[in-house]
Protein backbone atom coordinates (compact mmCIF):
# COMPACT_ATOMS: atom_id res chain seq x y z
CA UNK A 1 0.00 0.00 0.00
CA UNK A 2 2.80 2.36 0.84
CA UNK A 3 4.18 1.88 -2.66
CA UNK A 4 1.03 3.24 -4.15
CA UNK A 5 2.02 6.73 -5.15
CA UNK A 6 -1.60 7.66 -5.91
CA UNK A 7 -2.78 6.93 -2.40
CA UNK A 8 -3.44 9.87 -0.16
CA UNK A 9 -1.21 10.18 2.90
CA UNK A 10 -2.85 8.26 5.69
CA UNK A 11 -2.36 10.99 8.19
CA UNK A 12 -3.62 14.32 7.24
CA UNK A 13 -4.29 16.03 10.50
CA UNK A 14 -3.93 12.73 12.39
CA UNK A 15 -2.22 12.15 15.73
CA UNK A 16 1.55 12.12 15.59
CA UNK A 17 3.92 11.13 18.41
CA UNK A 18 5.04 13.84 20.78
CA UNK A 19 2.61 16.39 19.44
CA UNK A 20 -0.81 17.58 20.40
CA UNK A 21 -3.53 16.20 18.26
CA UNK A 22 -6.09 18.48 16.67
CA UNK A 23 -9.34 16.60 16.80
CA UNK A 24 -11.84 16.97 14.03
CA UNK A 25 -13.92 20.08 14.31
CA UNK A 26 -10.97 21.93 15.75
CA UNK A 27 -9.66 25.00 14.01
CA UNK A 28 -7.31 23.35 11.59
CA UNK A 29 -6.37 25.98 9.02
CA UNK A 30 -8.36 25.52 5.87
CA UNK A 31 -7.46 26.86 2.48
CA UNK A 32 -10.04 27.55 -0.15
CA UNK A 33 -9.73 25.37 -3.23
CA UNK A 34 -7.73 27.11 -5.93
CA UNK A 35 -10.67 27.51 -8.28
CA UNK A 36 -12.53 29.43 -5.61
CA UNK A 37 -9.84 31.99 -4.88
CA UNK A 38 -10.10 35.46 -6.34
CA UNK A 39 -7.69 37.18 -8.67
CA UNK A 40 -4.29 37.93 -7.13
CA UNK A 41 -2.29 41.15 -7.25
CA UNK A 42 -0.26 39.96 -10.22
CA UNK A 43 -3.35 39.08 -12.17
CA UNK A 44 -4.88 35.68 -12.34
CA UNK A 45 -6.05 34.70 -15.76
CA UNK A 46 -8.89 32.27 -15.64
CA UNK A 47 -10.76 30.29 -18.25
CA UNK A 48 -10.45 31.77 -21.74
CA UNK A 49 -13.18 29.98 -23.63
CA UNK A 50 -14.98 26.73 -24.04
CA UNK A 51 -12.88 24.15 -25.92
CA UNK A 52 -14.95 21.01 -26.30
CA UNK A 53 -18.57 22.00 -26.54
CA UNK A 54 -22.03 20.54 -26.67
CA UNK A 55 -24.70 22.38 -28.61
CA UNK A 56 -28.43 22.74 -27.85
CA UNK A 57 -30.45 21.07 -25.13
CA UNK A 58 -34.24 21.20 -25.34
CA UNK A 59 -36.61 20.51 -22.45
CA UNK A 60 -40.39 20.35 -22.58
CA UNK A 61 -42.81 19.94 -19.71
CA UNK A 62 -45.98 17.88 -20.19
CA UNK A 63 -48.91 17.04 -17.93
CA UNK A 64 -47.18 14.19 -16.08
CA UNK A 65 -43.49 14.95 -16.35
CA UNK A 66 -40.70 16.36 -18.49
CA UNK A 67 -38.64 15.49 -21.54
CA UNK A 68 -35.05 16.64 -21.98
CA UNK A 69 -33.27 16.07 -25.27
CA UNK A 70 -29.82 16.75 -26.69
CA UNK A 71 -27.86 15.41 -29.63
CA UNK A 72 -24.87 13.17 -28.96
CA UNK A 73 -22.21 15.46 -30.40
CA UNK A 74 -19.38 17.08 -28.52
CA UNK A 75 -17.52 19.46 -30.84
CA UNK A 76 -13.92 20.59 -30.78
CA UNK A 77 -14.31 24.04 -32.25
CA UNK A 78 -15.86 23.47 -35.65
CA UNK A 79 -14.71 19.85 -35.71
CA UNK A 80 -17.39 17.25 -34.94
CA UNK A 81 -14.97 15.54 -32.59
CA UNK A 82 -16.93 13.13 -30.34
CA UNK A 83 -20.08 11.88 -31.99
CA UNK A 84 -21.51 9.44 -29.49
CA UNK A 85 -21.48 11.21 -26.15
CA UNK A 86 -24.63 11.40 -24.06
CA UNK A 87 -25.39 14.89 -22.88
CA UNK A 88 -28.60 14.08 -21.03
CA UNK A 89 -27.99 12.44 -17.68
CA UNK A 90 -30.16 10.74 -15.14
CA UNK A 91 -29.16 12.12 -11.76
CA UNK A 92 -31.57 10.11 -9.63
CA UNK A 93 -35.14 8.83 -9.86
CA UNK A 94 -36.43 12.41 -9.85
CA UNK A 95 -33.92 14.41 -11.83
CA UNK A 96 -32.67 14.72 -15.39
CA UNK A 97 -29.82 17.01 -16.37
CA UNK A 98 -29.09 18.16 -19.90
CA UNK A 99 -25.75 19.88 -20.42
CA UNK A 100 -24.46 22.21 -23.09
CA UNK A 101 -21.41 24.42 -23.25
CA UNK A 102 -17.92 23.30 -22.24
CA UNK A 103 -18.14 19.55 -21.84
CA UNK A 104 -15.27 19.34 -19.38
CA UNK A 105 -17.12 21.71 -17.10
CA UNK A 106 -20.27 19.62 -17.51
CA UNK A 107 -18.38 16.49 -16.52
CA UNK A 108 -16.84 18.26 -13.58
CA UNK A 109 -20.16 19.51 -12.21
CA UNK A 110 -21.68 16.08 -12.91
CA UNK A 111 -19.02 14.44 -10.71
CA UNK A 112 -19.96 16.79 -7.90
CA UNK A 113 -23.64 16.00 -8.31
CA UNK A 114 -23.04 12.24 -8.43
CA UNK A 115 -21.14 12.44 -5.15
CA UNK A 116 -24.08 14.33 -3.62
CA UNK A 117 -26.38 11.52 -4.69
CA UNK A 118 -24.15 8.97 -2.95
CA UNK A 119 -24.26 11.11 0.20
CA UNK A 120 -28.05 11.18 -0.11
CA UNK A 121 -28.01 7.39 -0.20
CA UNK A 122 -25.63 7.11 2.77
CA UNK A 123 -27.98 9.12 4.96
CA UNK A 124 -30.50 6.32 4.38
CA UNK A 125 -33.38 8.54 5.50
CA UNK A 126 -35.47 8.09 2.40
CA UNK A 127 -35.01 11.75 1.47
CA UNK A 128 -33.60 12.33 -1.99
CA UNK A 129 -32.85 15.48 -3.91
CA UNK A 130 -35.55 17.07 -6.04
CA UNK A 131 -34.97 18.91 -9.35
CA UNK A 132 -35.81 22.33 -7.87
CA UNK A 133 -33.19 21.84 -5.18
CA UNK A 134 -30.54 20.83 -7.70
CA UNK A 135 -31.33 23.84 -9.89
CA UNK A 136 -31.06 26.13 -6.90
CA UNK A 137 -27.74 24.57 -5.86
CA UNK A 138 -26.45 25.01 -9.42
CA UNK A 139 -27.32 28.72 -9.36
CA UNK A 140 -25.22 29.14 -6.22
CA UNK A 141 -22.23 27.24 -7.62
CA UNK A 142 -22.33 28.99 -10.98
CA UNK A 143 -23.00 32.43 -9.52
CA UNK A 144 -20.06 32.08 -7.15
CA UNK A 145 -17.79 31.00 -9.96
CA UNK A 146 -18.83 33.92 -12.17
CA UNK A 147 -18.44 36.33 -9.26
CA UNK A 148 -14.83 35.14 -8.93
CA UNK A 149 -14.41 35.73 -12.65
CA UNK A 150 -13.72 32.05 -13.14
CA UNK A 151 -16.96 30.74 -14.59
CA UNK A 152 -17.93 27.26 -15.62
CA UNK A 153 -18.80 27.68 -19.31
CA UNK A 154 -22.03 25.75 -19.18
CA UNK A 155 -25.72 26.17 -19.80
CA UNK A 156 -27.79 23.39 -18.27
CA UNK A 157 -31.38 22.23 -18.29
CA UNK A 158 -32.69 20.65 -15.11
CA UNK A 159 -35.89 18.65 -15.35
CA UNK A 160 -37.77 16.17 -13.25
CA UNK A 161 -40.62 15.63 -10.85
CA UNK A 162 -40.93 16.51 -7.17
CA UNK A 163 -42.23 14.24 -4.39
CA UNK A 164 -45.84 14.91 -5.37
CA UNK A 165 -45.16 14.06 -8.99
CA UNK A 166 -45.38 17.69 -10.10
CA UNK A 167 -43.10 18.34 -13.08
CA UNK A 168 -40.24 20.82 -12.87
CA UNK A 169 -38.29 22.29 -15.75
CA UNK A 170 -35.66 24.97 -15.44
CA UNK A 171 -32.53 26.41 -16.96
CA UNK A 172 -29.35 27.66 -15.29
CA UNK A 173 -26.63 29.41 -17.28
CA UNK A 174 -22.95 30.05 -16.58
CA UNK A 175 -23.69 33.22 -14.60
CA UNK A 176 -26.27 31.57 -12.39
CA UNK A 177 -29.21 33.09 -14.20
CA UNK A 178 -32.14 30.74 -13.64
CA UNK A 179 -35.80 30.47 -14.55
CA UNK A 180 -38.51 27.84 -14.85
CA UNK A 181 -40.89 27.48 -17.75
CA UNK A 182 -42.88 24.88 -19.66
CA UNK A 183 -40.22 24.92 -22.33
CA UNK A 184 -36.55 25.74 -22.00
CA UNK A 185 -33.68 25.46 -24.45
CA UNK A 186 -30.00 26.28 -24.67
CA UNK A 187 -27.72 27.17 -27.56
CA UNK A 188 -29.31 27.25 -30.98
CA UNK A 189 -32.39 25.61 -29.52
CA UNK A 190 -33.19 28.94 -27.94
CA UNK A 191 -33.61 30.46 -31.39
CA UNK A 192 -35.06 27.49 -33.22
CA UNK A 193 -36.84 25.17 -30.81
CA UNK A 194 -38.35 27.68 -28.37
CA UNK A 195 -40.61 29.48 -30.87
CA UNK A 196 -41.57 26.18 -32.44
CA UNK A 197 -42.77 24.81 -29.11
CA UNK A 198 -44.33 28.05 -27.87
CA UNK A 199 -46.40 28.29 -31.05
CA UNK A 200 -48.07 24.96 -30.29
CA UNK A 201 -48.80 25.65 -26.64
CA UNK A 202 -52.52 25.46 -25.82
CA UNK A 203 -53.46 28.40 -23.57
CA UNK A 204 -55.66 26.46 -21.19
CA UNK A 205 -53.66 23.29 -20.52
CA UNK A 206 -50.25 21.59 -20.45
CA UNK A 207 -48.87 19.55 -23.31
CA UNK A 208 -49.71 15.87 -23.35
CA UNK A 209 -46.91 13.30 -23.48
CA UNK A 210 -47.78 12.65 -27.12
CA UNK A 211 -47.55 16.33 -28.04
CA UNK A 212 -44.31 16.77 -26.12
CA UNK A 213 -42.58 13.82 -27.80
CA UNK A 214 -43.68 15.05 -31.22
CA UNK A 215 -42.32 18.52 -30.43
CA UNK A 216 -38.99 17.07 -29.30
CA UNK A 217 -38.75 15.07 -32.52
CA UNK A 218 -39.61 18.17 -34.55
CA UNK A 219 -37.18 20.39 -32.60
CA UNK A 220 -34.28 17.99 -32.96
CA UNK A 221 -34.96 17.78 -36.68
CA UNK A 222 -34.99 21.54 -37.15
CA UNK A 223 -31.87 21.84 -35.02
CA UNK A 224 -30.10 19.27 -37.15
CA UNK A 225 -31.07 21.08 -40.34
CA UNK A 226 -30.04 24.53 -39.16
CA UNK A 227 -27.40 24.18 -36.43
CA UNK A 228 -24.02 23.44 -38.02
CA UNK A 229 -22.71 22.02 -34.76
CA UNK A 230 -25.23 19.24 -34.53
CA UNK A 231 -25.61 15.66 -35.75
CA UNK A 232 -28.70 13.63 -36.62
CA UNK A 233 -28.53 11.50 -33.48
CA UNK A 234 -29.94 12.40 -30.08
CA UNK A 235 -31.03 10.99 -26.74
CA UNK A 236 -34.12 11.90 -24.76
CA UNK A 237 -34.50 11.79 -21.00
CA UNK A 238 -38.00 11.10 -19.71
CA UNK A 239 -38.92 11.78 -16.13
CA UNK A 240 -42.36 11.07 -14.70
CA UNK A 241 -43.48 9.98 -11.24
CA UNK A 242 -43.33 6.38 -12.45
CA UNK A 243 -40.09 6.37 -14.40
CA UNK A 244 -36.90 8.29 -14.96
CA UNK A 245 -34.68 7.11 -17.77
CA UNK A 246 -32.72 8.02 -20.87
CA UNK A 247 -34.11 6.73 -24.16
CA UNK A 248 -32.34 6.45 -27.45
CA UNK A 249 -30.15 7.23 -29.24
CA UNK A 250 -32.70 8.15 -31.89
CA UNK A 251 -32.04 9.22 -35.46
CA UNK A 252 -33.36 12.39 -37.01
CA UNK A 253 -35.60 11.64 -40.00
CA UNK A 254 -33.56 13.35 -42.67
CA UNK A 255 -34.92 14.35 -46.00
CA UNK A 256 -32.65 16.33 -48.28
CA UNK A 257 -34.66 16.09 -51.51
CA UNK A 258 -35.65 19.71 -51.11
CA UNK A 259 -31.99 20.68 -51.40
CA UNK A 260 -32.07 20.49 -55.19
CA UNK A 261 -34.80 23.10 -55.33
CA UNK A 262 -32.93 25.59 -53.19
CA UNK A 263 -31.52 28.28 -55.45
CA UNK A 264 -29.95 31.63 -55.17
CA UNK A 265 -27.23 31.19 -52.56
Amino acid sequence: MMNNSFAQPMWSNGPSPGQFYNFMGGNAPTQLPRELTTAGPFGTKHSTAAITTGSSVVGIKFDGGVLVAADTLVSYGSLARYQDIQRVFKINNNILLGGSGDFADIQSIKRNIDQKMIEDQCYNDGVIMKPGELASWLTRVLYNRRSRMNPLYIDVVVGGVDETGKPFLGNVDMRGRAYNDYVVATGFGRHLALPLVRERKPKDRDFTFEEATNLIRESMKVLYYRDTRSIPQYTVGICTAADCSIKGPFKVEENWTFAETVKGY
Binding site: M10, P15, S16, F20
Partner: peptide, 17 residues
Amino acid sequence: CDRVAGYIHAYTLYSAV
Protein backbone atom coordinates in the same frame (compact mmCIF):
# COMPACT_ATOMS: atom_id res chain seq x y z
CA CYS B 1 -10.74 -2.28 3.58
CA ASP B 2 -6.94 -1.80 3.47
CA ARG B 3 -7.34 1.93 3.92
CA VAL B 4 -9.77 1.70 6.80
CA ALA B 5 -7.75 -1.09 8.43
CA GLY B 6 -4.66 1.09 8.18
CA TYR B 7 -6.57 3.90 9.82
CA ILE B 8 -7.82 1.69 12.63
CA HIS B 9 -4.35 0.24 13.12
CA ALA B 10 -2.87 3.71 13.44
CA TYR B 11 -5.08 4.22 16.46
CA THR B 12 -3.23 1.38 18.20
CA LEU B 13 0.17 3.07 17.94
CA TYR B 14 -0.01 6.29 19.90
CA SER B 15 -0.28 7.15 23.53
CA ALA B 16 -2.60 10.05 22.81
CA VAL B 17 -5.37 7.92 21.37
